[in-house]
Design a protein around this nucleic acid. Structure first.
Lengths: 194, 194
DNA sequence: ATTATCTATAGATCTATAGATAATGC
DNA sequence: ATTATCTATAGATCTATAGATAATGC
């Protein structure tokens, strides 16, 4: 049928993107291969020329989307740009578009139920993300600890803001997390300035 | 068949308990009625004498388990007992037994995909939990905001600690969250003492 | 007679596979 | 001839329902 030289590479990328969105929107367990392939404008059977199994797809999706997230967050260079990234992470826009958003916020409880091999992939990327943030917060183990605490809070707050139907409570949760995170980051950088 | 006067009430409670554990262990979407009923030592068909649908069960489970969690957390009376509750929440024991643990940590992304009616039930309980914690942190909107930030951080840290296979990183995440939460709580009570 | 549960099954999924089809590039 | 995708389907789920069964309590 109609295909060009690197059709397969392109198709694989399309399937990855479709799956990545579906997983974050509907969850991993609730997303079927057929639906993902429909989003990628392909048929069910074509899937198995690209991935061995659904588990294989899940690994590939996490590897890919966490790599992208790391690159996005890596552009933040100092305390101020971290706070800007944080405000964007905890914005109503991010809350309302989980399909394009943070994989951790959309998928963490499901990730914790995946096979160890997949969770090792998750851990590798999480480490790099926390290392990157930790470096900008001081670089030592105390900066890294603050990065872990701030990331935990951001993920939890986004999830709570998404679960709650009331816009008031939802917005208050996001704002509380922004403020508390700023306090933690400022106190960490003050510690360093002394 | 073998049944006593309040057999049905008892059965309903058994199904609720079995479902509540299964949901937290395997996720809502990945838990089937048949498996839940097997855990409750009943057959598939008997389910529909107790609940209209799986969605109906999910609402009932959330209503029930969040009510229990609120009661558990309600026993914390002052700042010190809140910190004790926090250390138990962020303990390896809680991390390693999601089936008996916090419904939010196990289920939040799935909750955010449930029908609005179910999310309203979630919101009702979350409000009461945050109100309870906020009161012990000062009672005003600033105390409530700190409660929301601390709860967000605890939920996120527990999820991250569960997802990561390395015990070192997992423990470091839990410890970072304990420390950061204590800092936020202390700074909130200092604000009040001034 | 009423009630709680069980048996059996319909109908709609889901993952995965085997073989057919139709384009490209030699 | 090779390759990417499609068609068709097997076999295992899943939710939900209808009717049978067997106990209790009148």
């Amino acid at each position: 049928m109609r295909y060009n030289k690197d059709q397969k590479v392109k198709s694989r990328a399309e399937i990855l993107l479709a799956a990545s969105r579906r997983f974050r929107t509907d969850g991993i367990a609730a997303s079927g291969i057929a639906g993902i392939m429909e989003d990628a404008a392909k048929t069910n059977g074509a899937f198995y020329a690209h991935f061995e199994s659904k588990d294989d797809l899940v690994s590939a999706v996490l590897d890919d989307s966490l790599e992208r997230q790391k690159e996005d967050l890596g552009s933040a260079r100092d305390k101020d740009s971290i706070i800007a990234a944080l405000e964007s992470y905890l914005s109503p826009a991010h809350r309302d578009h989980p399909g394009d958003g943070c994989p951790s916020a959309a998928l963490l409880p499901e990730i914790s139920r995946l096979p160890r091999s997949t969770r090792l992939i998750y851990e590798k990327h999480l480490k790099e993300i926390l290392d990157g943030l930790g470096e900008k917060m001081g670089g030592d183990s105390s900066g890294m600890a603050t990065a872990a605490a701030v990331f935990s809070m951001a993920v939890g707050a986004l999830q709570l803001a998404r679960a709650v139907p009331s816009d008031d409570l939802s917005g208050m949760i996001l704002q509380s997390a922004v403020q508390a995170a700023e306090q933690l980051i400022t106190s960490e950088s003050d510690k360093r300035a002394r």
